[in-house]
Design a protein around this nucleic acid. Structure first.
Lengths: 212, 212
DNA sequence: GCGTGTGAAGGGTTTCACAGCA
DNA sequence: TGCTGTGAAACCCTTCACACGC
């Protein structure tokens, strides 16, 4: 029943799936079902039942043989696994179309994600209210990141400025970066960087669709 | 030298990496370098040189032993592999914050991706010009999708409407869907669906950062 | 000599089959 | 009986080492 983080290294592929299961469980919570078997979950999540049981077994024994998993308990366990108990503070750089959309998106807060700072180098945008934050000038970045205890930096600037912004974020003490600029950024290996490259998503989608 | 598509099934993991190499090559094109070795490419792309050579070998022999890869040729080959020669038509459903940002993003066109239609159920948005398209009412979806030859449908509506929109897109003849709604959508197996779930990206980022 | 392309080795992840428990 | 948890098998992907070509 113990949640065994850091005991043995859990495969990287597991975590996105755990988060995916959590999505499904959140949907199921709205129904009147109390328990669910790995087989049923499999059909909704499009992941094999074997895989689901193996993934969960990485972290403990949550299921009842003969019955399945208690939905509301499973949710708690999954949240524990990914460590979503406390709020995660986000800082955004680049308040363009995409940046504004992210700041104004209402869905993050209930997921434990919260924008606490936003930056732009355009004086015209500085001072503007976007979502729950007031846009600051990029010159304030380092100071504000520390003051607001930002955990994750989000890059939503143009290709030309992305590397430079990444460097500034790292200099400000950020260890986790989500990059939306369609460019390959280099960071020291102690920094965790993930890219969301929509052109790549769309082209991969087309490829898989054609070669299915 | 032949591009051997559909000869033997290429692993799914290869394609996103191919697109990633293409990003790097596009950046390199701006420099005055003419050729690059897998070793040099490895450092920029953060992928092992073995991996790069293996990935490319899936599709043919592009490299010069002793020299490396000709940058502008490699670009052509990579574009061939992923079939990016002709324009890919995009249709968007849900002209909210995120939807508008996507429609107004200038970077897609040069990547061979083009919005040709956008839909919303809100009468107030219908008729508005966003990027290169005029927003249509969702009731026109089926007709307009066919008329404009939309290849990929993009879902940027709320959680509650996502499944229904997916069903409508499929009914309209769409086979490829990119879903931004943070919900698990079910589609028939002949449909290719990819999710971009930003909350999951952020939480995975945090997990990997903490457990690094 | 330098760097690619590739068969073989290695490692890791998914699949399977079944023991064990409710 | 029904379904989980798990060691073993199968599979796939990455890594390696080296033969070959420039």
């Amino acid at each position: 029943m113990n949640i065994a983080l850091d005991e043995k290294k859990v495969s990287d592929a597991v975590i996105p799936r755990i988060l995916h299961y959590l999505r499904v469980i959140q949907q199921l919570e709205k129904s009147d079902k109390m328990t669910i078997s790995s087989e049923e979950l499999s059909k909704i999540a499009n992941v094999s039942a074997f895989q689901i049981r193996k993934d969960l077994a990485n972290f403990g024994k949550f299921g009842q043989p003969g019955t399945g998993y208690d939905i509301s308990n499973l949710k708690k366990y999954l949240l524990d696994i990914i460590g979503s108990k406390e709020m995660c503070n986000l800082g955004l750089v680049g308040v363009g179309n995409l940046g504004s959309a992210l700041l104004n998106y209402k869905g993050f807060e209930e997921e434990g994600l919260k924008f606490v700072a936003a930056f732009d180098k355009d004086e015209g945008k500085v001072g503007k209210v976007c979502g729950n934050v007031i846009v600051e000038h990029s010159n304030n970045l380092k100071e504000s990141i520390k003051k607001n205890d930002v955990h994750i930096g989000i890059i939503a600037v143009s290709v030309d400025n992305a590397q430079q912004v990444a460097d500034k974020l790292i200099e400000a003490g950020i260890f986790s970066i989500l990059n939306f600029a369609p460019v390959v950024i280099s960071v020291p290996k102690e920094i965790t960087l993930r890219d969301v490259d929509l052109s790549i998503e769309l082209k991969a989608l087309r490829y898989f669709s054609v070669n299915k």
